[in-house]
Computed example of a mutant assay.
Amino acid sequence: MSTPMDAFDKVRPATECLDLLTAPVAEAVRGWRGTVPAEQLLYVDTDPEKADTAVFVETYGPWLLEQSANCVVISAKRGGEATLAAALVLGRARADVNGVVRRHLGARKASFAAMDTALGATGMEYGGVTPIGLPAGWPVLVDAAVADSPHVLIGSGSRRGKLIVPGRALAELPGATVLDGLGI
């Protein structure tokens, strides 16, 4: 089986590409703390016009769908208060927002956050939202299938470029909780 690294000509440590990352992602890589060394967070340059999952895997390799993960921003409401959280699921799956996410966050209602809200709160671009560099205190829900993956291709904060990260590094992010059945 191929790895995400096999799809790209040039794979570099993200620590060497901080200028290509959005500010919150670069800051998170700079201050990386975890059992996975920061040098194992990899960066690949990609075409920003092909950042959406379906077009991306069509361009770079259909097998990448199984090794990619999407990060979505969720707005969870309870008692008139809204909380933002992130959910990370494999590219072939959808986040179970109305089931697993809502119950885990103890919310009455959970839905995808409005694009303006998500992008404004994260400082990232549409099509590039990543769990690395999210605001402090956010719950980061990681599907167990993502956490168990040797390497996962995720956004880099912008439409140009992707990160390749060991799944266990994502499970160790600040605020992360690994959940079975998050991706359906």
Rank of each mutant, 00 (worst) to 15 (best):
S75N: 02
G127A: 12
A87G: 15
T53R: 02
R94F: 13
D143Y: 12
E58G: 12
R102H: 11
V129M: 05
A85R: 07
G137F: 09
T130P: 07
R78G: 10
Y126I: 07
R92C: 12
G120M: 05
A121T: 13
E58S: 14
L141I: 05
L84W: 10
V55S: 14
W138M: 00
V57Y: 09
A136F: 01
V142L: 05
D52P: 00
A93P: 03
T117C: 05
G106R: 02
W63Y: 13
K50F: 08
T83N: 00
R102E: 07
G31H: 15
D96I: 00
V140R: 15
V44P: 01
A144W: 03
R33Y: 00
G106W: 07
V57H: 08
R102Y: 11
L141M: 08
R78C: 09
V89G: 05
G34L: 01
A113G: 12
L88S: 04
G34E: 01
Q40A: 09
V57A: 06
Q67D: 01
V89D: 03
E49A: 15
S75C: 09
G123R: 06
E81L: 12
M124K: 07
L119R: 09
W63E: 14
A85V: 03
E58A: 15
L64V: 04
A87T: 14
T53M: 14
E66D: 15
T130Q: 04
F56Y: 12
A95Q: 10
P131V: 01
A87V: 09
G128R: 03
G61E: 09
L105W: 11
Y43I: 08
V89Q: 02
E39N: 11
V36L: 00
V129Q: 05
A38Y: 08
A93H: 15
L84C: 10
G137T: 06
I74A: 09
T53V: 14
K77Q: 14
E81S: 13
T35Q: 13
P62R: 10
L141H: 14
Q40R: 15
K50C: 12
K109T: 14
V140S: 08
V55C: 01
L65D: 00
I74K: 07
E49P: 00
A110Y: 07
A107F: 12
M124N: 04
C71T: 15
P131C: 02
A51V: 06
R103S: 15
V89M: 01
G137D: 09
A82N: 10
S68E: 04
A87L: 08
D116N: 14
D47A: 11
R103P: 12
P135W: 05
A38N: 05
L105K: 08
V142N: 07
I132D: 00
W138I: 00
C71A: 09
T122K: 06
